[in-house]
Design a protein around this nucleic acid. Sequence first.
DNA 1: GCAATCCTAAACAAAT
DNA 2: CATTTGTTTAGGATTG
Length: 321
Amino acid sequence: MLGDAHSAYDLAAGANRKPPYSFSCLIFMAIEDAPNKRLPVKDIYGWILEHFPYFASAPTGWKNSVRHNLSLNKCFKKVDKDRSQSIGKGSLWSIDPEYRHNLIQALKKTPYHPYSPGLAPPSTSPPTLPQTFHHRSSLGDYLSRGQDSPSRYSPPPCSEDLQDDHTYSTAKSPSRLCSSQVGTPSSPLDDDDDIIAVEIQSDVKPEPREIPLDSHITTAATTYISQQPLRGQRRSSGAGAGTLAGSSLPWTKNRARGISDTLPLKKRRAAAVEKPPESDDEEMKEAAGSLLHLAGVRACLNNITNRTAKGQKEQKEALRN
DNA sequence: GCAATCCTAAACAAAT
DNA sequence: CATTTGTTTAGGATTG
């Protein structure tokens, strides 16, 4: 689905530009783009390389950063691979459903995402920023109905921004919703996603976020590509706009300290991996997600087809003239 | 100037 | 043994 993004990227001559996405976003997109929603590190590299040729010529340090992000970002979860399927070293990485919306949010906040301030939806409005505000206000609405302080917009616990990465600041925002951290199915963030769900008229409450995701991701990458980044936006729109790499955020692995934090990190991690990757419920979610994904792929392919066909036609006409 | 966020580099261990 | 993968720490750059 993102294949078009790649070509568009090349066409846009942006291949050598550093993507405005944080590594977290890139990883997220890569994993989401995978049929099973899980990828080995190697494939994540591959996906990034394929869609963002910039990294092909970039120093290899970016791979380190990718791994670094996978390790530190709570949004990413290691999944035990079937012993039957030997994919080489390492394990598969997936998106932790618990933090998935955070990533989505992060993505939405990227400069080149249709919902982001700096980027307008491809077709409709001009490159201003209404969309974002729309989004924000929606958030605000949600918050006002769901929280105590309706008056001011306070970023949803984990959604605040995309920082995801490291670790560093440990107890930074202790109170910040870490409550939602563990399994609070209906955390504020979910609402945010509901916003999206509403847009797509999804009535499947339990897993409304599945749908938007693919389209968001696709749109994001595609949009970015076609919009020619100006780089340096890293944090252009406020803290973490567009990047999730943070660490201090609630969903950052190391930062969130809990009871189990007393355990050696390795053991904690092991425990996390040990637990069955998916419960039945999650399998259902995944199945739903896959279907939605397919739907998204199809829609995307249609768009691509139409677009390319249209483009070629236009090109021919241009040549003729 | 400080805090927060993100990126990069590097060291190291474990797995393959 | 070499390479890859995963974890952790440290420091720099940028922004509010």
